Computed example of a mutant assay.
Amino acid sequence: MNENIEVYLTPLQTCALIPGMTKGHLAQLRYAGTGPVFLKPTPRTVLYRRRDVVAWIEASERTSTAA
């Protein structure tokens, strides 16, 4: 697979990439503006770039459970 080709994911595909994520929770994250960056090419279509989803997951890295 060519590394330069962008991979776009539907919300369902994005949920499959993130353990425990549901479409409903992903929609809540979109509404709150706290989830991965997303695209809306049409009013009823939501897409995510795979690299943005991975970056969002990576940004959640923690070394402690304290606050």
Rank of each mutant, 00 (worst) to 15 (best):
1 M>W: 03
2 N>Y: 15
3 E>H: 13
3 E>N: 10
3 E>C: 02
3 E>F: 05
5 I>V: 12
6 E>R: 08
7 V>K: 08
7 V>D: 05
7 V>P: 06
7 V>N: 01
8 Y>G: 04
9 L>D: 12
9 L>S: 12
12 L>K: 07
12 L>M: 07
12 L>C: 05
13 Q>P: 04
13 Q>R: 08
13 Q>C: 02
14 T>Q: 01
14 T>C: 06
15 C>S: 05
15 C>H: 07
15 C>G: 14
16 A>K: 09
17 L>N: 06
18 I>P: 02
20 G>S: 07
20 G>W: 03
20 G>D: 02
20 G>E: 02
20 G>C: 05
21 M>T: 02
23 K>F: 08
23 K>S: 07
23 K>E: 06
24 G>W: 01
24 G>P: 01
25 H>C: 01
26 L>G: 02
27 A>W: 14
27 A>V: 13
29 L>Y: 07
29 L>W: 15
29 L>M: 12
30 R>P: 00
30 R>S: 01
30 R>G: 00
32 A>M: 11
32 A>W: 15
33 G>H: 10
33 G>T: 04
33 G>E: 02
35 G>R: 04
35 G>K: 13
35 G>N: 09
36 P>A: 03
36 P>D: 05
36 P>F: 01
37 V>E: 12
37 V>W: 10
37 V>T: 12
38 F>G: 02
38 F>C: 08
39 L>K: 05
39 L>N: 03
40 K>S: 02
40 K>F: 11
40 K>Q: 11
42 T>Y: 00
42 T>F: 00
42 T>P: 01
44 R>N: 03
44 R>A: 01
44 R>L: 09
44 R>I: 11
44 R>M: 06
44 R>T: 05
45 T>N: 01
45 T>E: 00
46 V>P: 00
46 V>W: 00
49 R>F: 10
49 R>N: 11
49 R>G: 07
50 R>W: 14
50 R>A: 09
51 R>I: 13
51 R>F: 12
52 D>R: 08
52 D>N: 13
52 D>I: 11
52 D>A: 06
53 V>Y: 14
54 V>W: 10
54 V>R: 05
54 V>D: 07
55 A>P: 11
56 W>L: 13
56 W>P: 15
56 W>S: 11
57 I>N: 02
57 I>P: 14
57 I>V: 14
58 E>A: 08
58 E>P: 12
58 E>K: 06
58 E>T: 03
59 A>R: 08
59 A>L: 01
59 A>K: 04
59 A>I: 06
59 A>M: 04
60 S>P: 11
60 S>V: 03
61 E>D: 14
62 R>Y: 07
63 T>K: 15
63 T>D: 08
63 T>M: 03
63 T>A: 10
63 T>R: 10
63 T>C: 06
64 S>P: 15
65 T>M: 14
65 T>A: 13
66 A>R: 03
66 A>H: 10
66 A>E: 15
67 A>P: 14
67 A>C: 11
